[in-house]
Design a protein around this nucleic acid. Structure first.
Length: 551
RNA sequence: GGGCCCGUAGCUCAAUUGGAUAGAGCGUUUGACUACGAAUCAAAAGGUUGGAGGUUCAAUUCCUCUCGGGCUCGCCA
């Protein structure tokens, strides 16, 4: 039973109480964990809010509510009492905690998850890096956040599709092709002038060398296509090493180049439709999107005076396409440097006729990489950047994914390579993984001593020590954390939860010996350890981080 | 100059979206290995939440102003 379900039980009691007191509607109160040092497992601020509408003293009202609740003799409540300015604090009963723990042990990895019965169909688009170079560390953060969000939503029973949008149209593709062509001529020993705005990275030279070794001839090569294919295969490889798998790879060219039965592209269709709706107009030889009608601060160009279409034109067609594919919730993850683009994209969604809330854009701030205290700069054009592959090779996928989800997306992240490599409690990912290894170490020891682990038969009411109680509570409320991550689109609360759980487990481990002469107590504690291992596995799994049995 | 994000302990960051005495880790100081992994734990010190107003029972959170940092302001993507 999660906090959400407890609240539901509470709601009806609070509503009855409010009605009895003559208040119109019950207050929109919340259920929270009281601060440390204050008694009680959970606290409700219902009396505080009710006192306002009733214009009475919140403290006495909280006391009345407490005794009203105690009279009801609810199974999940141990005791209830007023506290502070007018809070209602209550403890959870031992039977409730045992029951919750038993649920974890019987439902195992599906504890807290729900089967796909949510009506929302979610499309989450992330990374979508231009195929002009390998992924860098910033893309890694987007990949980690996006993939974890996708895992969290599907865990909660939503239908989720992960999509990567490939910008394979436009100037940058021409430039990529020309960059490869000149590099190829160079390695072939021919003179060539490298384009001023070309992609200078070593990776282009590497492709050129590879082509030369394969005995390819310049006149038989489509440099643009070859470069694109090579770049995409590099990107796909980087992502797969990172344990990020996309359901769809969506090419811009299918919208901007491919023609339908009417002989026109999807982008052209979208523009015509906008004009018909009166949302696009010609001015000074260009076609403009009237985004100011929907809150943007100026109108935006869709078709340049030279006739070429802008990125925005494709993007409108793309998001229209997403909606036409039946997705009811669109989530885009963008690097924060694209934030200026948000209002026009929101405007586009409104133009399409949808609530702008249909599209949520999660902006994540940039990652600054620190190596020996020296910040590493990133610039694709200059070709000197730290690639995701390099960082993954150095610190490992687990540390990367955990660190990228350690901070709120809208907070800048300092990634310390040395810390991520450390194998000690300084390093949060090892600290959490160590819990899982320690659990399994106990199982191995138990097995070697011939102790059977039968969590289903254990008497969980024996787990009465303070450390045990705190740990059980934490485990039971795991689904609330996951749900909160989904609601606020911030997976970093999950890493926080895991660190806190790890902390409680290590404390329990110090204080409560698991394998003792007391067979019943041993069984109960083994069951608790089992539940810890389950939740740690679940939590790390949602982050795409492994849970090793030995380290 | 306009817009967006951030500003919290020496450092890196949280704070359940308006709740109670603002919490973790690192670092510092002091302790704990003869049984399940010391890759751990216990304890201490460390704060005018950049500043000034305002809203209310309650503000790190919301509003206004202000200072500092990052990003962004193209018929580039």
């Amino acid at each position: 039973m999660s906090k959400k379900l407890i609240k539901k039980e509470f709601d009806s009691i609070v509503a009855e109480f409010a009605a009895k007191k003559g208040a119109g509607a019950p207050p929109a109160y919340s259920l929270e964990e009281p601060p440390k040092g204050v008694g009680g497992d959970l606290a409700a601020n219902a009396a505080l809010l009710l006192a306002k509408t009733l214009k009475t003293n919140p403290k006495t009202l909280a006391a009345e509510l407490a005794s009203y609740i105690m009279e009801r003799k609810l199974a999940f409540i141990g005791s209830a009492e007023p506290a502070g300015a007018g809070f209602l604090n209550f403890t959870l009963s031992g039977s409730f905690l045992s029951g919750g723990l038993a649920s974890i042990l019987s439902e195992r990895e599906s504890y807290g998850s729900s089967r796909g019965n949510k009506s929302e169909k979610i499309l989450i688009e992330f990374v979508s890096a231009n195929p002009t170079g390998p992924l860098h560390i910033g893309h890694g953060r987007g990949a980690a956040i996006g993939d974890s969000l996708a895992r969290i939503f599907s865990y909660l029973g939503y239908s989720v599709t992960k999509e990567y949008y490939i910008n394979d149209v436009g100037n940058q593709m021409e430039m990529l092709g020309r960059s490869l062509e000149t590099r190829f001529l160079e390695v072939s020993g021919k003179k060539s002038d490298f384009p001023e705005d070309g992609y200078k990275g070593e990776y282009i030279k590497d492709i050129a060398k590879k082509l030369l070794e394969q005995g390819r001839k310049a006149e038989c090569l489509d440099f643009k296509k070859t470069a694109l294919d090579e770049m995409m295969s590099t990107i796909k490889n980087d992502l797969s090493v990172f344990e990020v798998k996309f359901d769809n790879w969506f090419s811009e060219s299918t919208l901007a180049v491919n023609r339908g039965k009417n002989g026109r592209t999807a982008v052209e269709d979208a523009l015509e439709w906008l004009e018909k709706e009166g949302l696009a107009y010609e001015n000074e030889g260009a076609l403009w999107f009237a985004s100011t009608k929907y809150g943007d601060d100026k109108d935006r160009v869709l078709r340049r005076t030279d006739g070429r279409l802008t990125y925005l034109a494709s993007d409108i067609a793309y998001h229209k396409n997403k909606i036409e594919r039946g997705f009811t919730k669109l989530i885009d993850l963008w690097g924060a440097d694209h934030h200026g683009y948000v209002p026009r994209m929101k405007a586009a969604v409104r133009a399409i006729g949808k609530d702008p809330e249909t599209l949520t854009i999660v902006l994540y701030q940039l990652v600054s990489l620190v190596r020996n205290g020296v910040p590493v700069t990133m610039s694709t054009r200059a070709g000197e950047f730290v690639t995701l592959e390099e960082v993954v090779n150095e610190v490992g996928r687990d540390a990367c994914r955990f660190f990228f989800n350690l901070r709120a997306p809208d907070s800048q992240l300092e990634f310390d390579l040395e810390l991520a490599k450390k194998q000690s409690s300084d390093n949060p990912v090892f600290y959490v993984q160590y819990v899982h290894a320690r659990c399994n170490s106990i199982f191995r020891e138990a097995a070697s001593r011939g102790i059977k682990t039968e969590p289903g038969k254990a008497d969980l009411s024996l787990l009465a020590a303070h450390e045990e109680r705190e740990l059980v509570k934490k485990l039971i409320f795991f689904p609330d954390t996951v749900e909160f991550c989904a609601r606020t689109l911030t997976p970093h609360h999950l890493t926080g939860y895991l660190i806190e759980t790890a902390d409680l487990y290590h404390r329990f481990y110090e204080k409560c010996r698991v394998l003792t002469d007391d067979a019943k107590l041993t069984a109960a504690r083994l069951a608790l350890v089992e539940a810890v291992a389950v939740i740690i596995r679940e939590g790390l799994g949602l982050l795409g981080v492994s849970a090793p049995e030995k380290m």
